[in-house]
Amino acid sequence: MIDALQTATAGMTRATDRLGTAAQKVAEIGAPAGDAALPPAAQVDLSSTVADLIGLRTSFALNAAVARTADRMSGQLLNIKA
């Protein structure tokens, strides 16, 4: 059960890191670099970034569910042994 909790925690950490990367991509789209103008709306492709964000949200939620289940199972095991 400890392995499940560690795996879930690692998965949530990876999802959080990737979320930061995706957020940075979104922030960079609207920020002008130096004297450069903003890119035209037709050249901005957010669909892959939004798909990543949806996947990351699901990944984090599933890992959190695994962590809750492992915690609940550990608690039940401790109650049985007590």
Results as ranks from 00 to 15, higher is better:
Ala51Ser: 02
Arg68Cys: 01
Ala64Val: 01
Thr21Val: 14
Thr21Tyr: 10
Ala22Tyr: 02
Ala61His: 05
Ala36Ser: 14
Leu19Trp: 08
Leu5Val: 03
Arg72Gly: 11
Leu46Arg: 11
Ala61Gln: 09
Arg57Thr: 06
Thr9Met: 12
Met12Trp: 04
Gly75Arg: 08
Leu62Ile: 05
Ala4His: 12
Ala33Tyr: 10
Ala51Val: 00
Ala82Trp: 09
Thr9Phe: 03
Ile80Gln: 14
Thr7Asn: 08
Gly75Met: 03
Asp45Tyr: 04
Val44Gly: 02
Lys25Val: 10
Ala70Trp: 06
Arg68Leu: 07
Ala41Val: 11
Asp17Asn: 04
Val44Ser: 10
Ala31Gln: 11
Ala33Pro: 09
Gly20Asn: 02
Asp71Asn: 04
Gln6Ser: 13
Met73Arg: 07
Thr9Ser: 12
Pro32His: 04
Gly20Gln: 02
Leu38Gln: 13
Gly11Ile: 04
Pro40Val: 12
Ala8Asp: 01
Ala10Lys: 09
Thr69Glu: 15
Pro40Leu: 13
Thr9Lys: 09
Arg18Ile: 03
Met73Leu: 15
Ala41Gly: 03
Asp52Trp: 06
Asp3Met: 07
Ala8Ser: 13
Asn79His: 06
Ala64Pro: 05
Ile80Ala: 13
Thr49His: 01
Ile54Asp: 05
Ala4Tyr: 09
Ala22Trp: 00
Gln24Gly: 01
Ala23Gly: 10
Val66Met: 09
Gly34Pro: 07
Pro40Glu: 11
Ala70Ser: 08
Leu38His: 14
Leu46Phe: 13
Gln43Cys: 00
Ala27Ile: 04
Leu53Cys: 09
Thr49Pro: 06
Gln43Trp: 09
Leu53Val: 02
Ala65His: 08
Asn63Thr: 06
